[in-house]
């Protein structure tokens, strides 16, 4: 199965990726090849097989309900490009 331009456009949008024209053309071609390659999975004898989500067969461990983290905002926010009064800034969101 191959992907058309509209599909690649849609995927890039879902993934929030801006692609240059060359990248876009290359993506259409390469993604099609990848999808064609993984298509062979359809032939695997999976009737009745339970999907495997984890390589270990363990149950989730639970944490005690304790506050262990304090305020480290100022240090952490040194990695952010745009902050003001402790808030992370983004172009105005319209709800």
């Amino acid at each position: 199965m191959s992907l058309d331009k509209d599909q690649v456009q849609h995927i890039a949008m879902l993934a929030r990726l801006r692609l240059s024209d060359t990248e876009f053309a290359e993506s259409v071609e390469k993604l099609s090849r990848i999808v064609a390659f993984v298509d062979q999975l359809k032939n695997a004898p999976t009737a009745g097989v339970v999907p495997m989500a984890h390589p270990v067969n363990e149950a989730q461990r639970l944490r005690a309900d304790e506050v262990t983290e304090g305020d480290d905002r100022d240090r952490i926010q040194q990695n952010a490009v745009s902050v003001s009064d402790g808030l992370y800034l983004v172009p105005k969101v319209i709800e």
Binding site: S82, S84, L87, L89, V90, K92, V93
Partner: peptide, 13 residues
Amino acid sequence: SIHEGLDGYSGID
């Protein structure tokens, strides 16, 4: 998200 008083930006808490 806080939308008021941030001059064209939204602030995220």
